[in-house]
């Protein structure tokens, strides 16, 4: 009885140094593992967020542009802003950072896409002939101006050097920042390159 009683009492009073050190080491290891798994899960979550949100953003950016170009009666490419639009000229290379679209033969009604270098953003605005149209951000992600955003091409992908009312419109957007999550696109970042390069053909043909 005595050994059992003394053992009980000893166990009730405390632990040996070896027990404390071992249990502390185990606790530290377990805690480090939990923290590591959580951090790893967080990084995976951010990666998933990047995949899905950029896909969502690109769809939202492009669907309106697709609709406008496909239903266009006449398309001009050139330079422009809210102050006005200047087309590339009938005998020049058909490329620029602004796109003017007439949906019908009525030239009082139009849609204008233009790149704003101040905010590095592509905007869309329109005029319905009687009142100010809406004013929307097509791409809220800052974009670079390293190449023309809009280019007119023929059916083989050659850039046109003459204006034509029914071109294939090639769109090039190269982004410098993601919106959600807010990540700068640069070397060393989780994303160092992201662009959208697409083509849209008007359904109206000669």
């Amino acid at each position: 009885m005595k050994p059992a009683l003394s053992k009980n009492i000893r166990m009730g009073r405390g632990f040996t140094l070896a027990e404390v050190m071992l249990s502390t080491t185990l606790l530290v290891l377990v805690f480090a593992a939990i923290v590591s798994v959580n951090l790893w899960g967080l990084s995976m979550n951010i990666r998933s967020e990047i995949w899905l949100d950029t896909s969502d953003d690109s769809r939202h950016s492009m669907w309106m542009l697709h609709e406008d170009v496909r239903t266009a009666e006449t398309i001009y490419v050139g330079t422009g802003s809210l102050a006005g639009f200047t087309n590339a000229g009938a005998t020049n290379v058909q490329a620029g950072n602004a796109l003017l679209i007439y949906a019908s033969t009525n030239t009082n009604s139009w849609v204008l896409y233009y790149y704003d270098p101040t905010t590095n953003t592509l905007f869309r605005t329109n005029w319905d002939g009687t009142s100010v149209g809406d004013f929307r951000t097509v791409s809220a992600n800052p974009i670079t101006n390293d190449n023309y955003i809009f280019t007119m091409e023929d059916y083989l992908g050659n850039i046109l050097s003459n204006a034509t009312p029914y071109p294939v419109v090639a769109v090039y957007l190269s982004f410098t920042k993601l919106q959600n999550p807010q990540i700068d696109i640069e070397p060393g970042s989780p994303v160092d390159f992201y662009q959208i390069n697409t083509k849209i053909a008007p359904r109206m043909r000669p």
């Binding site: 995949w51 899905l52 059916y155 294939v168 959208i196 697409t198 083509k199």
Partner: peptide, 22 residues
């Protein structure tokens, strides 16, 4: 999520080619 993004991007690539051919 990566597969979904790839699939959507592949769809956009196919659409881009369709637009050119059409």
């Amino acid at each position: 999520s990566q597969f979904a993004a790839c699939s959507l991007a592949a769809n956009m690539q196919a659409m881009k080619k369709i637009e050119q051919v059409i």
